[in-house]
Nucleic acid binder design. Structure first.
Length: 520
RNA sequence: GGCGCCGUAGCCAAGUGGACUAAGGCAGCGGAUUGCAAAUCCGCCAUCCCGGGUUCGAAUCCCGGCGGCGCCUCCA
């Protein structure tokens, strides 16, 4: 089993090979930081973060880069609307973006280069392109001349003529060819500007990615990623200008993730819904309102909920798990219902990890997991097949959906193991073989979950009250009283206690001599 | 108009020529367990949008429909 990856450039799955053996450079096109991140901005980072984890697991030395576009027309316009400086807006939105990434578990990014920190590199590249006859200056602007690139269009599979067929030809175009695109844009009055050989201006959109990826990852990188929407024109142009400049293949593999289909969720879409209070009855109203608002695309849609709003309602791990439930190239539709279903499906994993601690006395989250195939935990044979199947799925173009399925099967197998050996029936600790088998299997579950970036920490809402000791003590009091009632066969009272707690969203579980509780 | 993608159970979703008499999850149903529950376990629950064709063999390939979607506008 070897890794195969779908390459947008060839439109086929190819065996994964790197430019330099053992090393992988990944460049993912990041956001233009002009407004708070929405969930669509998390899709790529989560996927490529997962890809990095998997490559590291396979022994590669991986360098993962996501760029920050902090100079652009949208930034200029937005800053003007808000009456702030472009730099201030960009700085604020970058912070928002990075916080969201950390929250959803994207922690493998090695560099977040900013466009404005690389003006020199971009100018140098533009200079080289002009010198090589691939670009020309025009009244303070610099354009890449598409006709000088023989294989322009090879990534998106379209010819220049096809491209122009459906395009409105803009007025006042003095470019040599309508498809020529800007490398450098002359600045207008009051706009941010950098000095250049062609006069004050700012870089075009595509050049930053070429300049920064080459600086950080070399002239040929291994994986260039981004949303499918970037395939044309952005990636096509990046490719054209990079290869025209260096003469080297720009990227070995082009990976494009499917797009979020509809504006998402959380009841915040409509406006002043409860952000804090619990009004479960309100769901239908919120959803109805939400459904009316999903028309159109997510990105660019002013109604799309921000990531922060989404995370206020749904646990970030749930969102991450949801995003990875589908093959990354497929479009994905997000709704409150879907995320809620995902949350339910995750409960079983948390229950199992709780059971592990109950049985063994140690936290499943403290188990030392393998970080590579070589250091993977040793498991008894009946569980080894799950690892193989999980890795097989991942080897097939990072099929996280299939891998997730295997995770569920592993969960059930471990529960069956516990059930068969009666490990959770009290006194299970005397079954040394059972404990050992269970421990290795749970370690495997956490190891494989870790590849997807989940099950790394206890979910706060799944156990206890999240730190309020008074609640803990009051609950213990109620449980003691109820246990007393049960021992006297006063089930009317014990059930009433349980029912009334259920009304408060608290579930009681009687197990052997122990009673536990949790919030739903 | 051009380029491309998709259509698998109530819902989500793997599988893309032969071990598919089609993973897995959610929901549902039956059983075990329980004082009753919860949790857990066991079992049940699809012939793959429609119609042709290729093939010994197709959910998987080809053609034609129907339906949904993306890009061609500096949206990840």
């Amino acid at each position: 089993m070897t890794l195969r990856v779908y390459n947008s450039l060839t439109r086929t799955k190819e065996p994964f090979e790197t430019v330099v053996p053992g090393r992988v450079g990944i460049y993912l096109c990041g956001p233009t930081v002009y407004k708070p991140a929405h969930i669509g901005h998390m899709v790529g980072p989560v996927i490529f973060d997962t890809i990095k984890r998997y490559l590291v697991y396979n022994g590669y030395d991986v360098c993962f880069v996501i760029n920050i576009t902090d100079i652009d027309d949208k930034l200029i316009n937005r800053a003007a609307e808000e009456g702030t400086e472009v730099a201030e807006l960009a700085e604020r939105m970058t912070r928002d973006y990075l916080e969201n990434l950390a929250t959803i578990g994207v922690d493998g990014v090695d560099h977040f280069p900013k466009a404005t920190d690389h003006i020199d590199e971009m100018q140098a590249m533009i200079g080289r392109l002009i010198g090589a006859g691939h670009a020309y200056e025009l009244e303070g602007d610099v354009y890449f001349e598409v006709s000088t690139d023989d294989d322009y269009g090879k990534l998106s599979g379209r010819s220049v003529d096809e491209t122009l067929a459906g395009t409105r030809v803009e007025a006042n175009q003095r470019k040599r060819h309508p498809a020529d695109f800007a490398l450098w844009k002359k600045s207008r009055q009051g706009e941010p500007a950098w000095e250049s050989p062609w006069g004050p201006g700012r870089p075009g959109w595509h050049i930053e990615c070429s300049a920064m990826s080459i600086k950080l990852l070399g002239e040929s990188l291994d994986i260039h990623g981004g949303g499918l929407d970037l395939l044309f024109p952005h990636h096509e142009n990046e490719l054209a200008q990079s290869e025209s400049c260096t003469g080297q293949p720009f990227a070995r593999f082009w990976l494009h993730n499917g797009l979020m289909q509809s504006g998402a969720t959380t009841g915040k879409v409509g406006g002043e819904h409860d952000r804090h209070g619990d009004r479960p009855d309100d769901d239908s109203t919120i959803e109805a309102e939400f459904d009316q608002q999903v028309a159109g695309k997510l990105a660019g849609s002013a109604g799309a909920a921000s990531v922060k709003e989404l995370f206020a309602v749904h646990h970030p791990e749930t969102v991450r798990f949801f995003l990875l439930g589908t093959q990354y190239r497929s479009p994905i539709e997000l709704s409150d219902d879907q995320i809620a279903e995902t949350a339910r499906s995750l409960q079983g994993f948390y229950r199992l990890l709780e059971a592990f601690e109950r049985i063994t006395g140690q936290s499943a989250y403290d188990l030392p997991v393998g970080v590579t195939r070589e250091t993977s935990v040793e498991v008894v044979s009946e569980f080894g097949a799950f690892r193989d199947r999980f890795l097989d799925a991942m080897d097939d173009d990072f099929n996280t959906g299939g891998a997730v399925g295997v995770l569920f099967e592993l969960r059930t197998a471990i529960n069956a193991f516990i059930s068969d050996r009666g490990l959770d029936d009290g006194g299970g600790a005397t079954d040394q073989d059972g404990i050992a088998g269970l421990t290795s299997a749970v370690t495997l579950l956490r190891e494989l979950g870790g590849l997807l970036g989940v099950f790394r920490q206890p979910p706060v809402e799944a156990a206890g009250d999240g730190g309020d000791s008074l609640v803990d003590e009051l609950m213990q009091l109620l449980i003691d009283l109820r246990t007393e009632a049960r021992s006297e066969k006063n089930f009317e009272l014990s059930d009433a206690i349980r029912d009334r707690l259920a009304d408060l969203g608290i579930t009681i579980e009687d197990r052997n001599e122990q009673t536990s509780w949790r919030r739903e």
